[in-house]
Amino acid sequence: MNKAFDVTARGLRTFVSDVADGFFEITHNGFALVGLAIVFAALALVARPDLRKTGEEQLMGWLQSRKPAPEVTDLEPTAIERTTAASPADLPKQQAAVAYWLSKKYRVAAEPLSVLVAEAYGIGKRTKIDPTLILAIMAVESSFNPFAQSQVGAQGLMQVMTRVHGDKYESAGGTLTAFDPVTNMRVGVKVLQECISRAGSLEGGLRYYVGAANLEDDGGYAAKVMAEHERLLQVANGRAPSTVTPPTVRPQPIPVATPPKPAEERTEPAKVALLSSVS
């Protein structure tokens, strides 16, 4: 019994060994054939450049067909060129402090404010007008909304009366540029310069700017601008700005006496003559 089992086991081992040896021989010969095929193909490509070129074209065509189709989108790769925004980290320390403070107070993103702050400092250097004054006017006029429009037609960041100062926008392309933040700021500063020159003082120029030159009171406009200007100066100089806002003085309405209503005229009832017939 044991002898028969041993014979069977040896037979199985021999069978498995033969199968393994045969598989090794087949795969070994197969790899050899693949290697030879690659060598012959390489020699053929070297000897026949036209075949190599045709093969490359077919391979590129196959790869292109496997490439996924580009995603369809309406976004423009050049949209960044129209964006009025910059990183506050790229500004000088003083300007960055002003941009961050305005962003927090007026709930406007610091990136577009960075462009406005940098532009205000550039304009201020050219015109000798304090940049924090320019920013204070924008804050009071529009709270940094470049699309703001008043009931009387003042538009943009600095609420310039476009129909009055339309000629100042011509070099920029027309009155629609009133809604371009940088253009509106530049035109607004030109108007401010004219107002200060006409009034002979900063406070007087602010009254002209708001259209209150011929009024007894400007509704506290100049005081608001100067208070915000002072706070921005403190921020720019690294100090904590004061939080006290001067009270706004508004003109009191003048009481107008109302004339008494005339007494209603009383009409006497018409007397009707009774005519009696005479018999």
Rank of each mutant, 00 (worst) to 15 (best):
M1H: 13
N2L: 15
A4Y: 08
V7Y: 13
T8I: 13
R10H: 06
F15C: 08
F15T: 10
V16P: 06
D21Y: 06
F23R: 07
E25T: 13
T27V: 14
H28D: 15
L33S: 02
V39Y: 09
A41N: 06
A42R: 07
R48W: 12
P49T: 04
L51G: 02
T54A: 15
E56H: 10
L59G: 00
S65G: 14
R66F: 13
A69G: 01
D74P: 02
E76Q: 05
P77R: 08
A79N: 04
I80T: 05
R82Y: 14
A89W: 05
P92Q: 04
Q95M: 09
A97K: 04
Y100A: 09
L102T: 05
S103H: 03
K104E: 15
R107S: 15
P112W: 01
E119W: 07
P131D: 07
L133W: 12
M138Y: 06
P146S: 10
V152L: 08
G153E: 09
M158I: 11
T162M: 02
H165N: 11
Y169D: 02
E170I: 10
E170A: 15
S171Q: 14
S171M: 10
T177M: 13
V182E: 05
M185R: 00
V189S: 03
S197Q: 15
G205I: 07
Y208M: 10
V210E: 01
A212K: 12
D217W: 02
G220T: 00
V225H: 04
A227M: 05
L232G: 02
L233R: 13
L233A: 06
N237Q: 11
N237K: 11
R239N: 09
A240C: 03
T243M: 11
P247Q: 07
T248K: 01
V249D: 01
V249T: 02
R250N: 02
P253N: 04
S279W: 08
